[in-house]
Structure formats: structure tokens, C-alpha cells
């Protein structure tokens, strides 16, 4: 056993090329959801495996009733460059979100629902977090069909076994 290990080290230094991206999405603001989806899709486009674990508010992105109604945060988001009080006015979030969606459509970025279909078609694996499902009283039928299964954190970590896997929390 020992000899074998030594031989492996001498013969072939392990490649550093990323083989698998494991993304954990815990937020439902539209900018975070898109960051996660674009990273997963971009990985598949490079021939890298990609999996997303939807937990806590991230589950909103895969709930049939909610996924097309995600918003950008206009309060507590310094990058919006508007006063916090103004950001809290009724309709501000919707307004900012629709502006953002228009800009994204120009760049050929699909809406959330279509993006989920693209991810599934490209071979990305989508998982829902069991604990968060229980916490929000969600059932499998509340989620889009593209979700492969409901997993525990342990299940998800097991899928991260193997060389050159990267985990990313969003």
C-alpha cells in the first residue's frame, strides 16, 4: 500500500485542473441567484461538473410559485447608490428588479425558470437541502421538476469526494 502511494506521487503529480464545482446557494436575491447559476453553467461549458445545493432562502429560486418573483435588494445594499429610506419605498424593489431584468435580457441571460431548464439540460445536478425544506414546511411538489433529490448536508459532502472539487458558498 505504502509503495503504491509513493509511486503515484513520483510518477504523476496530480493535475490542478478543477473537475467539479459544488455551489451552495443560500440567498434568494436575484443577483446572488444569477451569480450561482452563471457559475454553474459556466463550469458545464468548460467541461467541468457542476452541482448546486439550494438551502435556506436559496430554495426560493427553485420553488415553482416563487422563482419568477425574485428581487434585487434595494435596502441595505450599498451598491444600489440610493438612500436607504428611498430604497424602502413601496415599489422600489420591483422597479429596480425590472430594470435589472431588462439589462440581463439584452445580454441573452435567461429568466430564472429557463435558466434552471438550461442547467438541467447541460448536466448540472440540482439538490434541495432537507433541513431547510423542513424548516420552511416545503414538500417535493413545491419545487421544480429539475431538482434531482432532497439531500442532507452529509449527502452533499459525500458527492464532493474526489480530486479537484471546489465548494463555493453563495
Amino acid at each position: 500500500m505504502e509503495t503504491q502511494d509513493i509511486n503515484q506521487t513520483i510518477e504523476k503529480p496530480t493535475s490542478k485542473k478543477v473537475k467539479k464545482m459544488m455551489l451552495i446557494l443560500s440567498k434568494a436575491t436575484i443577483d446572488n441567484v444569477y451569480a450561482c447559476f452563471i457559475l454553474a453553467n459556466g463550469a458545464r461549458m468548460e467541461g467541468i461538473e457542476a452541482e448546486i445545493f439550494f438551502t435556506f432562502f436559496g430554495l426560493e429560486a427553485v420553488q415553482k410559485k416563487k422563482l419568477e418573483h425574485l428581487h434585487v435588494a434595494t435596502v441595505g445594499n450599498p451598491a444600489m447608490h440610493i438612500p436607504t429610506l428611498l430604497g424602502g419605498l413601496p415599489g422600489m424593489e420591483s422597479f429596480a428588479t425590472s430594470m435589472m431584468k431588462k439589462e440581463m435580457e439584452k445580454l441573452d441571460i435567461p429568466p430564472v425558470g429557463e435558466f434552471i431548464e438550461i442547467l438541467e439540460a447541460s448536466g448540472a445536478k440540482l439538490w434541495a437541502c432537507k433541513l431547510a425544506m423542513d424548516m420552511f414546511h416545503l414538500e417535493r411538489k413545491d419545487l421544480v421538476d429539475e431538482i434531482s433529490d432532497v439531500l442532507t448536508v452529509g449527502d452533499f459532502y459525500q458527492r464532493a469526494e474526489g480530486e479537484n472539487t471546489q465548494l463555493l458558498f453563495i
Binding site: 453553467n41 458545464r44 461549458m45 441573452d108 435567461p110 429557463e114 438550461i118 439540460a121 447541460s122 448536466g123
Partner: peptide, 16 residues
């Protein structure tokens, strides 16, 4: 990828 998927020639799964 999205444009290729909408080309009517292949869908995204087939393209991959």
C-alpha cells in the same frame, strides 16, 4: 449555449 438551444437544430442536451 442558449442561442444554440433555440436554433431549432439541436436542443441543449443534444448539443452537450
Amino acid at each position: 449555449i442558449r442561442k444554440v438551444g433555440k436554433s431549432g437544430i439541436v436542443n441543449i442536451k443534444e448539443f452537450y
